[in-house]
Design a protein around this nucleic acid. Sequence first.
DNA 1: TAAACAGTGACGGCGCGTGAGCGTTT
DNA 2: TAAACGCTCACGCGCCGTCACTGTTT
Lengths: 259, 259
Amino acid sequence: MTNAQLMTVSAFARICGITAKTLRWYADIGLFRPAFIDPRTRYRYYAWDQVRDFARLRAIRACGASLTEIRRELNVRRSAPELKRFMQKLRTAKLRSIDEARRSLAWLEGELQNLETASPFHATITYCPPVRIASLRADLKHYSDVHAHERLLWESVASRSDSRMRGVLWHRCADRGVIDSEPFIELGEHSRCAAGLQPKELQGVHVARTFSSLDDDEAEQSHVSLSRWIRERGYRLSGPRREIYRGMLLEIQHPLHPG
Amino acid sequence: MTNAQLMTVSAFARICGITAKTLRWYADIGLFRPAFIDPRTRYRYYAWDQVRDFARLRAIRACGASLTEIRRELNVRRSAPELKRFMQKLRTAKLRSIDEARRSLAWLEGELQNLETASPFHATITYCPPVRIASLRADLKHYSDVHAHERLLWESVASRSDSRMRGVLWHRCADRGVIDSEPFIELGEHSRCAAGLQPKELQGVHVARTFSSLDDDEAEQSHVSLSRWIRERGYRLSGPRREIYRGMLLEIQHPLHPG
DNA sequence: TAAACAGTGACGGCGCGTGAGCGTTT
DNA sequence: TAAACGCTCACGCGCCGTCACTGTTT
């Protein structure tokens, strides 16, 4: 058998660096069939040149395609443009997952540093999906004025038992020495915006986030720490900072520049 | 309920950007339990400050830890060094997976280019685990002398029906104008090496691989193409090239420098 | 004849998604 | 009373790993 063109499952498996079980599975689902099956014993036999085809299959698999997708793309007759679109889809997905992986890595390294220095500061990076909001923007002189401004919006719009997400977008205008503050409240899917308020889309974005108590001083300190955390990891702020009220906690988000 | 400290599964799920089912699952396996369960209705209620804990849990999860591992590390009392070792393990795994992902990406982009130029050349990158081999090294003048050299080894060592992997390691010594050729044959786990031959470990390494016919000219051309393929992707050759006989096909491997 | 293979079939495991059927809250 | 939400239980999925039992090849 060795010098003939065919070999058994386990021989083929060893060459391909995979288990015989996997080969049987691929054959069963019609993804990769042996060159010959003995009708009497049902033994599967593979041809030498199938090694090359199998290598390609595994390469595509390693790119993140599911077995079903691969079968679609390879078994049925697909045109070159179709194949190209498929590969491009895999490519963008791969790029995204590498991005994700790098964020996780950065987080891990931060946590390891934290363990060294016994620092109590924790932050994570999360994707925040887009949300429709109603908001009310104003320039304020002092951080402490923000609370009054918030109440202005919420009392006009929502009842006390309203569970929609609420918070504030803000940034400091260095040149004008003013706080640009924009309290907001989430809008339901189809709910109308209250009179005098503009509905607005809070764009989906990755944020660095941490949590603080509701105390103004601690919140401000958290903002400072989070800014530093972001800088140290080579990210850049993009857009106004966000504070979201989570019961007795304040969630602090700094949107990150893509890339 | 809104202004109290507790909220229902779906409210908590929305805030955390996850489904209620996942939360129930985490509770069931004892990974993340709600702050309170109503003993009558069995409704789960979560506290606001659990949002922070959950964010951390998901960050660890995103780093590649399994739910079981996370439970081990977070539920039971673990010392700081233990936690650190765990994080470091996650870090090295993450680094490896990013590496893998980048290789896949490079392959994809190559295939996309191939589609553009309708080039028939295909290569993949694969990890080859270490193998014990017996080999016989010599300097040869011509590529065509290699075959005689091969026979020398194999006829002395193996029978015809021997299915062990066999091939040649070689590189061109530019300064001496000579081909350093080293035919090899795989050794079984505990099999002894034939007389006069040194047993040797072919180290585990990532290789760029392609396939060619057994024809010398085509093989040489494949080596050239593969070298270019490697250069274009920013990899570097590390160690002698490998040719492995796969029946009627020749598998050509160029070991890659780690990193 | 024994060892090393081949086959099929059933079950497990992760991390949930999906849905049925039923109770609870608003 | 209806709608929206909660509960449990059961099954499914992708991709195999791991038996157990039986037949085949060397």
